[in-house]
Design a protein around this nucleic acid. Structure first.
Length: 231
DNA sequence: AAGTGTCTCAACCGCAGCCGC
DNA sequence: CGCGGCTGCGGTTGAGACACT
């Protein structure tokens, strides 16, 4: 029985700050606990979502690169709507982001297809909506399409597939070598020599993370969090 | 410049699986 | 072994941004 109504809707900057502090304090697992002790009037679910999709320091922002687009296409053809699984192969991208991307992408595709169909009625033998199926059964058609894109810069599909195969055998390694994958973490975590070393903190528990706080920003977060807790 | 349509993305919801008791 | 709570996943929605007329 929840007496207090949980807040919904967009997060404020202040809420973000508080959440970041408490994630650094308690790790990114105990969402219900964080939701309670933080004083944020949010559900644990909501906190988790905000962190994973927006606040996590390892997130990439901005447009998908052609390589990423291609990879999404290929992985979707292979795995279907397993967004979180696909996201693990795209360092810094979230399942939500990929899902959104796919939605837009497929909508466009569907529109194009509609147009094409209206022009050539013969092609109607395999009338299946991209967006509806979205599964391995699309592998052939969609895979072929994405292969057409196989050109420009970057690594080839061979490289990507090699990587996928290897990672499946070796407990999932990310696409790019300079990222370190954390178990169950689809977000890239640059190694500690990088500027923002606190990227790797997000999985640590309180004690662990205290050992790794060489930079002002996160220290201030901690101070903020602690004072918040003790006040 | 204003109105309308389209796109993007953050956030919510419901469900399933896992885990501890 | 069953139950309840928590977490994570996939689907969906809605508001704001942007493009077009």
């Amino acid at each position: 029985m929840e007496q207090d109504e949980h807040r919904k809707g967009p997060w404020t900057e202040q809420e973000d700050m508080i959440l970041i502090n408490f994630v650094h304090l308690f790790g990114d697992r105990r969402w219900d606990y964080i939701a309670k002790v933080s004083g944020l009037n949010r559900t644990g679910k909501s906190c988790r979502l905000r962190w994973v999709n927006y606040l996590h320091p390892g997130l990439k922002r901005g447009k998908m690169t052609p390589q990423e687009e291609r990879l999404v296409l290929e992985l979707h053809a292979k795995w279907g709507n397993r967004w979180s699984r696909i996201a693990r192969k795209l360092p810094g991208r979230t399942d939500n982001e990929i899902k959104n991307y796919w939605r837009t992408h497929m909508r466009k595709k569907a529109q194009e297809k509609k147009k094409a169909m209206s022009l050539s009625p013969l092609s109607s033998t395999r009338e299946v909506s991209f967006y509806d199926t979205g599964g391995p059964n699309m592998a052939a058609s969609e895979g072929e399409k994405s292969m057409e894109l196989e050109d420009e810069k970057g690594y080839s599909m061979d490289d990507i597939w090699k990587d996928i195969d290897m990672s499946e055998e070796n407990m999932i390694k990310p696409l790019t070598a300079n990222y370190t994958d954390l178990e169950g973490c689809n977000i890239f975590c640059p190694s500690l020599e990088n500027d923002y070393s606190w990227d790797s903190l997000w999985k640590m528990d309180e004690d662990e993370s205290k050992k790794f706080l060489p930079f002002n920003q996160s220290i201030s977060y901690f101070e903020y969090g602690t004072s918040y807790l003790t006040s």
